[in-house]
Nucleic acid binder design. Structure first.
Lengths: 156, 156
DNA sequence: AATGCCTCCCGAACGGCTTTCGGATTCGCT
DNA sequence: AGCGAATCCGAAAGCCGTTCGGGAGGCATT
């Protein structure tokens, strides 16, 4: 155990370098990866496997252009429970809606913020109806006009 | 040209299947991919290359656990320009800050919404200072308490 | 109807890559 | 000193990525 804090599972420099590279290029080959972090291929392979089963590497995804798959519209939807005494199971009530990409529980006036992706204003209207019905919440929607940049790799 | 609308570049069913699989598993091998979409390896390879240079496939990224890389805190920051007459170059003024993962231009009271990732409340405070200084904006911050789900693959 | 062009598909082949294994090294602990 | 755990490396086997040539189908022109 090299963890000083005893709470947050810290990571070593080499592991961080691996995560940095894979966050930038998720399809990077093990051979390239090994070269970039200065290790043998088999050592890198072993570390990646460990990072995966440790949960530090949660998966790999292609970034696809929303416009080209017919989902050009993005919005943020803030949720406020109608019945403050209702049990807080909103994520479970909403996860079946595939238009909802992300769900965050937040501090502030509202309880949750959803990030959604739809085909059109009509699609957004229909989604709002489904959200209100499924979760018994009132909603406040902020429509995204453009996305200067998105999902940049974190500075590891 | 199979595009009926003449504006939005629509995609074919096979290409959509490829994008769906790669959005779910960005490191999927071409062999597996070919099997899943019912094509030969070389045909899939050709289509993926075309999707990449067409911009439908914008890249590949590993999803990493923010907690384990020392960035356990997420927040949304809404921006309002201080000088309404100032030129709108906020994204360029902010892109050098690596803590900012995403930047959205939005409709509504505020002009932009940023999604950021920091190590601690002190890190957030310092980032807010940098944002206000770099972009001459006032900020409103919503701290994320937990993330029930995030960045789910879209329903293609 | 035939020709040529374009697009898309496939199979083969080569080189590179992934994955696993055994063994060497280091480090910490008894 | 001796032992165990962790980590590294190199080698080997098989699988995979990448490219190439060629064939099938659609479409327009002749």
């Amino acid at each position: 155990m090299s963890d000083k804090s005893g709470n947050a599972p810290e990571l070593e420099a080499t592991d961080r370098a691996i995560l940095r590279e894979l966050a930038r290029d998720g399809r990077c080959s093990f051979t390239d990866l090994a070269e970039r972090v200065g290790l043998s291929v088999s050592a890198v392979h072993q570390r990646v496997r460990r990072l995966e089963q440790r949960g530090a590497l949660q998966g790999y995804a292609a970034r696809v252009d929303g416009d080209q798959i017919g989902l050009p519209m993005t919005a943020f939807i803030s949720l406020t429970p109608i019945d403050p005494a209702a049990p807080d199971d909103y994520p479970q009530r909403l996860e079946h809606l595939p238009q909802i990409e992300s769900c965050y529980s937040v501090a502030g006036d509202e309880s949750y913020i959803l990030q959604v992706r739809v085909a059109s204003p009509l699609g957004l209207e229909e989604l709002l109806r489904q959200i209100r019905e499924a979760a018994k919440v009132s909603t406040r929607t902020t429509v995204v006009l453009s996305t200067p940049f998105e999902n940049r790799p974190p500075a590891i």
